[in-house]
């Protein structure tokens, strides 16, 4: 059991360090400024919202042509705040926050938390690399069980 604990523990050293650090960074992504955003809220804006194509047009006009050409990956509409976050499908994951009612651009920036999420899951290295974080998770469970066994077994025998 000790050998299992030892070999599994050594094998996942790097993964545990990388996954732990990215996990901590992701927990504090707002405080660390990994997400572009605005504190501006327009609670009445949703009722008079512009159409989605118009909002995309406004967002596209605010970024470089190369980013706009990559196309829109997704739009995150916040009715209560009166904003929409338009995320482009470029390599660096650019996001533009636009007011729903008049299309004013409120913030532009990179969604660096997306990079961290992909790093956390292993997806950053390519398709199939998500198995890397699965392996680390399974290994951690094995470490937990083997550690518990090593602690418990002598006590059970002595009892």
């Amino acid at each position: 059991m000790f050998q299992l604990h030892l070999w599994v523990g050594v094998a996942i050293t790097f993964l545990v360090v990388a996954i732990s650090v990215t996990g901590i960074l992701l927990n504090h992504k707002r405080a660390l400024g990994f997400m572009p955003g605005t504190d501006e809220e327009r609670s009445e804006a949703f009722a008079g919202a512009l159409s989605l194509p118009v909002l995309v047009e406004r967002a596209a006009a605010a970024v470089d042509a190369s980013v706009a050409e990559a196309g829109v990956d997704r739009m995150d509409v916040r009715p209560g705040d009166g904003i929409v976050k338009v995320r482009f499908d470029d390599a660096e994951v650019t996001e533009v926050t636009v007011a729903l009612d008049d299309g004013e651009v409120l913030a532009i920036g990179l969604r660096n938390d997306v990079f961290l999420e992909k790093l956390h899951s292993g997806e950053i290295f390519g398709d199939g690399w998500i198995l890397l974080s699965d392996a680390a998770a399974i290994a951690l469970v094995l470490l937990l069980l083997s550690g518990l066994w090593m602690w418990l077994y002598p006590r059970v025998r002595a009892a």
Partner: peptide, 17 residues
């Protein structure tokens, strides 16, 4: 290397191209 690679991975935390 573990420290160096982690630093290269996350500093700064932007997508590599």
């Amino acid at each position: 290397a573990v420290l160096g690679v982690n630093l290269a991975l996350m500093l700064e935390p932007v997508m590599w191209t």
